[in-house]
Design a protein around this nucleic acid. Structure first.
Length: 136
DNA sequence: GCCAACGTTGGC
DNA sequence: GCCAACGTTGGC
């Protein structure tokens, strides 16, 4: 069963355009236990939204997890992991945080409830809802 | 750029 | 093991 996720990055640091240019990237730099736990739960083939934080504030694209978690060589212990991701496609229209917050169907999203969590789970219903919003 | 929220660290 | 201090994130 495919699981769904949402992963944040600041577009100034590493944005959707960088990912599409690279074709694939290692999702690194996560130093938060809750986020790392979510990364450990990811499986190859899972899908994830790419969210632009700070200066973008919108869900912009869809990624696929191409490699499940493995140790982060830049971490000084084994608590933190990496996954590999590739871009699947950009959303027809980016879905802004404002609209997500305004949508009662999405009020339970970790993105809304726990804004600082950089890697969070998305339910199938939430996933479908955001795709629908992008196609409006 | 500011600051609130919250996760982590470290002294006790 | 608790909790105050500190650091980081991310919306505004």
């Amino acid at each position: 069963m495919t699981q769904y996720w949402l992963m944040k990055s600041e577009p100034d640091e590493y944005g959707w355009d960088d990912l599409t240019r690279d074709g694939e990237t290692k999702w690194s730099g996560v130093r938060n236990f809750a986020a790392a736990k979510n990364m450990r739960a990811m499986e190859k083939g899972d899908l994830a939204f790419f969210y632009h934080s700070r200066t973008g504030l919108a869900v912009v694209g869809i990624m696929e997890i191409t490699r499940s978690h493995y140790p982060d060589p830049s971490a000084d212990n084994d608590k933190f992991v990496l996954v590999d991701v590739r871009p699947v496609k950009a959303l027809v229209r980016p879905v802004p945080l404002q609209e997500i917050k305004a949508n009662p169907k999405l009020s339970d999203m970790a993105l809304v409830k726990q804004s600082r969590l950089s890697v969070s789970p998305v339910s199938a219903a939430q996933w479908v809802e955001i795709i629908a919003m992008a196609e409006k």
